[in-house]
Every structure is written in C-alpha cells, then in structure tokens.
Design a protein around this nucleic acid. Structure first.
Length: 313
DNA sequence: CGCATTTGACCTGA
DNA sequence: TCAGGTCAAATGCG
C-alpha cells in the first residue's frame, strides 16, 4: 500500500475553493473586458490589479485544495485527483545486479502510471531544449505509433531528488516532425543552466498544452497563451513562496503552480486544456499582460474547468 | 574516468 | 494478458 492520505489530513473546504475560483473567473472576465474596451495605456493599471486578484483567487483555491483531503460531505465529486503522481514512491531500491534472480527483486517497475495530475503535454516542431537537464532512461515502441517514445528524467533526480520526468514521442498526426512532449511532475532541482537559459532565450515556442485528463471528452477550452515552459517552471519555483502562502514543498503534494502558467504575451500560440485535475487546471497568472490581443475565454463555468473525473480514489 | 545513452528485462495497472 | 513505464548492465563518448 502506498500513498494513503495522512490520517489526520485537514479537510478540504471545496465550497471555499470553488468560491475562490469563481472569484478568479470573475476577475478574469473583467480583465478580458478591460482589454477589449480600454486603450492599453489606460487599462494597464487596472489590469495589473485584476491580474493580482486572479492570481490571488487561484492561489487561495489551490491552497485549500492542497491542504488536505476532500470533505465528501461538502463536495461530492466524482472526485478530484490530488497528487496521485506524487506518490510515485518506489521505495528503496536494492543495489541492482539481481536482475536474473527471481526472488529478492527490487521494486523496480513499482510505479503508478502517472497520467493524472501534474502532467501536461506540449506539441513542438522540435524537441527543444527546455532549459532543464534531462537524462534519457528508456525508449519504448508504442503500439500503433510509428515512432518510439523516449523517456527522460531530470538529471538531478539522484543528487537533488528532482522527480520531474518527460516523455518525447514524434507524432504522425500533428504534422511532419512534430513531437509530443509530456511532462510529468515538476522540477524541484535548482539547475544553474536554467538561469542562463532564462536570460538568453529568445525563442518562444508555441505549443499545445494539454493538461492530461482521464476525461478528454470534456469540453476543451481553447486558450491562447505563450509560454516558456522551462522558464515558467523556474520562475514558479522562485515565486511559489510569494504567491501561495500556504504552499509547502514538504507537504507531499505538488504545487500546481509549478506547471506552465498562463502567460499573456504575444505571440499567441494555441493552448488548450482539458480540465479535470484540479491542480493542473488552476494556475495563477503571474506574468506579463502586454498583449492587447489577449484572448481569454473564461466564460465556461467552473464546472467545465473543474471537470472532476471519476477515478482513482 | 565519469557521465550519458542504449537496450532488453522486469514489473504493474488496466 | 499485454502495453507501457522503469531499471540497470552494457556500451559509447568526451
């Protein structure tokens, strides 16, 4: 058994979380209206205020949702998935070289399939350097796919315990030489390479961001954002303490703010998400709001964004 | 020599 | 049962 919630976990007040999200939605709508109606120079200050409110609302909601277990009396979900991925606890590995010995095997392969929360996908024309150091640990032929899938984990898994992994697979249907990159987990490492990358990078990579969901059939919301995936993750690491007051890296739950966030800049690449995992969908809005062509659609109800999925637990 | 990649085996969840 | 995810020995590279 593993990943049982702490017995004395605080109970999540889902009503409060939802209220925070509704507030955030309202602020976002106001922000949208602001961009549509007001000249940029006049609306900028108001926009900043609204952005702060959006970020604060989402952060508050996340704090609630990350603070413990669901109170099923208050929230009857078919449920959410709070950090199913963070429980990928393989336990202690033995020192290897027992491969041919059927007994006393280590726990390799003892894993949870992680396409739950804390997972997102981008499609890129090139498997670009995202600023992190990745180490390939496997490659697998995937049934029905022409190209194999490669598995990477953070180089700092061993020295810093960074749990971030990604999968890269060349796609056939997304155009020629398109790569679908699935990120799982978030970086807890401090990679100096990233810093220089952040400073030097000028290449913006547009991508399809798809928060993995078990209920893809749910309505997808096309949103238009730009993202530096790696940059945002890095920034988020740094900003976490500022923006999510109650977040605690040691809580065992990943902070959804570690996932790529919504950046409101030009150019505006396609960005879609199929919401179902609470933490994945809800993110603060941290960065610039320089684009007057901002095209945000928050009109969908929280229920659509928060399309909790029946599931594993 | 140290680190990254390759690759077949192993293991689990669906 | 099997597809997919991971491990770790073997190998390559700088």
């Amino acid at each position: 058994m593993e990943a049982l919630p702490p017995e004395n976990s605080p109970i999540i007040d889902c009503g409060k979380a939802i209220q925070e999200l509704i507030d955030g939605q309202e602020y976002a709508t106001q922000l949208q209206n602001l961009f549509q109606k007001a000249p940029l120079d006049q609306g900028l200050e108001s926009a900043e205020i609204l952005l702060d409110k959006v970020a604060q609302s989402f952060s508050n909601a996340l704090s609630v949702l990350n603070s413990g277990v669901i109170d099923k009396d208050r929230w009857n979900p078919s449920t959410t998935q709070l950090c199913s991925s963070c429980s990928d606890d393989r336990g202690v590995k033995n020192s290897g070289h027992s491969k041919k010995i059927p007994v006393a095997k280590d726990r390799r392969g003892t894993y949870k399939r992680r396409r739950t929360s804390d997972t997102w996908t981008k499609v890129s024309a090139t498997p670009i350097d995202d600023g992190y150091s990745w180490r390939k640990y496997g490659q697998k032929e995937i049934l029905g796919a022409r190209f194999p899938r490669s598995y990477f984990r953070c180089t700092h898994k061993n020295d810093q315990g960074c749990q971030a992994t990604k999968q890269v697979q060349q796609t056939e249907d997304d155009g020629p030489s398109m790569y679908r990159i699935t990120y799982m987990g978030h970086h807890t490492c401090k990679d100096l390479l990233k810093a220089s990358y952040m400073l030097d990078s000028t290449s913006r990579d547009s991508f399809l961001l798809n928060f993995e969901s078990n209920s893809i059939s749910k309505q997808e919301q096309p949103l238009f954002f730009t993202s530096y995936t790696s940059i945002k993750q890095e920034v988020n690491e740094e900003m976490r303490s500022d923006l999510t007051q109650s977040s605690s890296p040691s809580s065992g739950y990943p902070m959804p703010s570690d996932i790529p966030l919504f950046e409101l800049c030009d150019p505006l690449p396609t960005f879609s998400m199929a919401g179902s995992d609470t933490g994945d969908v809800v993110s603060g809005v941290y960065s610039c709001a320089s684009s007057p062509t901002l095209n945000m659609d928050f009109s969908t109800g929280i229920d659509d964004i928060f399309s909790f999925d029946d599931g594993e637990y």
